[in-house]
Design a protein around this nucleic acid. Structure first.
Lengths: 247, 247
DNA sequence: CGATAAGTTGATAACGTTCAAGGCCAGTGG
DNA sequence: CCACTGGCCTTGAACGTTATCAACTTATCG
């Protein structure tokens, strides 16, 4: 799918050309959870006309750290990572986003971190300028965006405690508890991790070897089960929580 | 100064009792930089009537992690730290705020981190409920709050890279560069640190000994000068920037 | 000027990284 | 259906950075 942004698509077409527009929002999977949830139908339709639906493949980078902030988007489907890196190439994942989350930097000139799809994903993409303009005129949208940003800031600050003060074991335990809360497992309780070992390391500020060692250790102790490369079952969640030192 | 919050103070007094109210905002040091900057005089006066000016002493904690979110505030004067800690008492400073910054958790039930004055400080304090109500009706205020929160989130995520991926030396160098940008030094170029060594350690996710060693090492190399306990001069800022690995 | 908290310095040990090799799984082609 | 391939993950050994523990020094304030 073409990722380039075509401004021409966003001008309002002459009314005659869209007598009964099929509104993408009516069938949207996240319409009640995303930031557009509180808009009335008319406003939602207007916002929808500003943006377009886009698919991205796993591994594809949607925005680059330091680039001009030219697009923002709602995540409709899939998981993506937000990351920054040092000049030397060391990477830190600063966030993982799920369906209904919002990505990009509205009201700002620069994208402060890269956004990369971890799985195949679908986005509802807006040119930043148009989005900013729309949001400025719609308090409900801005309020939802504010709520979401405040929540994200809280979660990010909690993660700083992990990065600065927790041991490798505590970090991995916290990660497993956290992922367990977001992604319910299948009927066997097996959670499909959206992250590779390297990516888990990049979330926790560790090396891949340390993550691997901690996880096999926890398996040996009967705290978790590892099934295949991407599966985990939290066997003793209470013990993990104790390990995680969650305040 | 009494920190307890007295709701009675916030009810509007009978009009007869305030014929020409002396508006605290007209002499406010941060009125053009805080979130209330874009309000018209009438709205600003209305907001002012909701809140009150409060002084706090260095060391005093204004809000506690996990408490009900009952107040929010603008910082008028002074420096404060935001911090979280593990059950075991390990602390991580998740933010440092300066005059015109906003503190507290609007639109949320819990305070996610403690707020403690590092220096004597003055705040413009609002009961959270009243503030939320006012903000909901005033798009300009909410927009400013959103801008500020987005900026803070960007800064916080940049700090995650430091916590997760930088060495002790890089951390200290980054800290010095960062503080140098916020606090201009005196005519000798000496910056008065608002943080003790322990607090610097708590910002960087290090121990006090490591911070001390890195700083005396940098002094030995002629990168910085240490004057007294709270003074630093950045002698070779370019070298520090190179050390900091700022992307 | 003396008391005391804050900071520095040193020795030692632990934790996590680094480097290196080997194993395992998923996808591909025979 | 099996062998082959390549990437991902695991395991091991050695090293290095930072934490820990303890003693000492210095700045600051009454």
């Amino acid at each position: 799918m073409d990722m380039r942004f075509d401004l021409a698509q966003n001008g309002a077409a002459p009314a005659a050309l869209r007598p009964r527009p099929i509104d993408a929002c009516t069938i949207c999977l996240v319409r009640d959870a995303a930031i557009c949830a509180d808009l009335c139908d008319a406003d939602r339709a207007a916002l929808s006309r500003i943006g377009r639906r886009v698919s991205v493949k796993a591994g594809q980078t949607v925005m680059w750290e330091g680039d001009d902030s030219s697009i923002v988007a709602n995540v409709i489907e899939g998981t993506l990572k937000l990351s920054t890196s040092t000049g030397g190439g060391r990477e830190q994942i600063v966030g993982v986003v799920y369906p209904s989350d919002f990505i990009g930097r509205p009201f700002g000139a620069r994208t402060p971190h890269s956004v990369t799809a971890l799985t195949d994903a679908r986005l509802c993409l807006f040119p930043r300028g148009s989005f900013d303009g729309f949001a400025t005129g719609h308090g409900a949208l801005q309020h939802r965006l504010l709520q979401r940003t405040l929540d994200e800031l809280d979660r990010t600050r909690a993660w700083m405690l992990l990065l600065g003060r927790k041991s490798a074991r505590e970090k991995v335990a916290t990660f497993l508890i956290d992922i367990g809360r977001r992604l319910r497992g299948d009927r066997d309780g097996v959670i499909a991790l959206p992250l590779s070992r390297q990516q888990i390391a990049d979330v926790l500020g560790l090396t891949i070897e340390t993550v691997s060692r901690q996880m096999t250790d926890m398996k040996r102790q009967g705290l978790i089960d590892l099934v295949g490369r991407r599966g985990v079952r939290l066997v003793d969640e209470a013990a993990l929580e104790r390990l995680a030192e969650i305040s």
